[in-house]
Nucleic acid binder design. Structure first.
Lengths: 260, 260
DNA sequence: CGCACGGTTGACCTGTATCAAGCCGGGTGG
DNA sequence: CCACCCGGCTTGATACAGGTCAACCGTGCG
């Protein structure tokens, strides 16, 4: 169902090599020796293609916790591959409501929303100190005319996002609070596990309110539902640390129609 | 905010020219003289490019009301441009719940969900007799390596779908029943108007239950909300014919935070 | 130290779901 | 041609999940 990734990929701490560039926030980098390559880039490229793909990444950029990577209305010019850290994206309606549309972690690509109208239509905010690879979109288009694997990869990434959002629509349209939270936890831990982290323990990088916004619930409901899961012995919660004790119980909650 | 399209584009009745082909359901066709071209295809192509793009459409295919164009799990091989008719797409969860993820009309492209895993992940069902142009995806990729405008167009279509789904997430995650239905009606009529239909009258091609599924509501709630709008003099409803009397009232309902 | 922000918990309220009855209109078969 | 039937729709009565409001707690930061 979801992409199967080598669980041996684990982010190494980012070492600042002190390579000076024009912009203090950015510095040169290559995909060819990046340990997240298998997440962002197509596999099975030739040596020649790989060096071409290296040129895609103009620079890296660091974003501190709480800062925005891009904002609704800003000119779109590049996609971003998350190298390190954790983001949320959110849209706002005219009357000020806003909705978290996703949480993104290392190896994932953000910015796809900007392609249609050449302007971003959501905000991307770092939930912890982060680092992204900036990939100018015109370069992506140029190169993907020549490297078929890259072309198809771009299409797959966009299609994957569409399918993910279908899943969120299903969640928001038909699930009850417990089901939503259970699905959320399972999804998070699965993605983290694909990146070499624990299958049962995770640290939430977002507030209860942000979780609630994503899941279409109020923060109090999120909190109560966490408490219920703890009472039932399904998970343990200490602040933002969550330990999944009974993964099967969570799975049962997700697909149990009406929790009969 | 949304694509502005010439309101003069109006679908002509499809005349079956009786051109026999191998498959009785399919026959050859060209984009270059299709009056929906501006909706599916990039604008500003040269003559040469236009003839190349004509090759994209392998065939047309007719789908009767109630029949499926593609189904969850089926092998993905092509995108479909709707030439005539009205579709819904829906996803199902393992436990049998299902969720309408969108309603698509003439000029729109469906099938994007299939690209990631080479298999479709949702069902596309015709809500009225329909006709689509079948565009094999490998041909699309091939041609978009050569025709830059086509490449960018494909990217835009996918990005547009992502942005649309963001909007649905906002709706499902934060709006109340009245707001959802008002937003739904405004969206439908706006898209129909862009196709040359009335700005105030529309015919619903879907049941209350399908509307409810899309909006995350039960059919009774949809029905009651329609009734309320009628009582308030905002719309008139006769079966599936809807006439919008007070578009501004609908707009106010959509962005009124909590209907204070 | 103390403030402020995030989180928990309780009491109560309300919007929507659920269950149930009945209506309407279009299609089918006698 | 009419009667019937059935699917889609409406409407009412009631239930309940989750929202709202409010008080309080813990922890980490200035």
């Amino acid at each position: 169902m979801s992409a199967v990734l080598s669980p041996t990929i684990s982010p190494t701490p980012v070492v600042d090599l002190g390579i000076a560039t024009l912009n203090p926030q950015t510095f040169k980098v290559a995909c060819s020796n990046c340990n997240l390559r298998e997440l962002c880039m197509p596999v099975g490229l030739s040596e020649a293609e790989l060096t071409r793909v290296d040129e895609l990444v103009g620079a890296r950029r660091r974003i501190k916790r709480g800062e925005v990577l891009f904002r609704n209305g800003e000119k779109f010019s590049a996609l971003f591959a998350i190298r390190l850290g954790f983001f949320k994206t959110c849209v706002a309606s005219e009357d000020g409501r806003d909705q978290v549309t996703g949480f993104q972690m290392a190896g994932e690509i953000i910015g796809l929303d900007g392609i249609v109208n050449d302007h971003h239509t959501c905000d991307a905010v770092a939930l912890e100190d982060a680092e992204v690879c900036v990939m100018p979109f015109d370069k992506i288009e140029e190169l993907s005319r020549e490297v078929n694997a890259l072309q198809h990869h771009v299409h797959k990434i966009m299609s994957r996002e569409i399918v993910r959002e279908h899943g969120v629509m299903l969640l928001l349209g038909s699930m009850r609070a417990e089901e939503r939270l259970a699905a959320f936890l399972l999804n998070l831990v699965q993605r983290l596990h694909a990146r070499g982290f624990s299958r049962s323990e995770l640290v939430l990088r977002m507030t209860r309110e942000e979780i609630g916004s994503y899941l279409g619930l109020k923060l109090e409901t999120v909190s109560r539902t966490f408490s219920k899961f703890v009472e039932d012995g399904i998970i343990e919660v200490k602040q933002r640390q969550v330990k999944i004790i009974e993964p099967d119980a969570l799975k049962n909650i997700v697909n149990s129609q009406t929790c009969l």
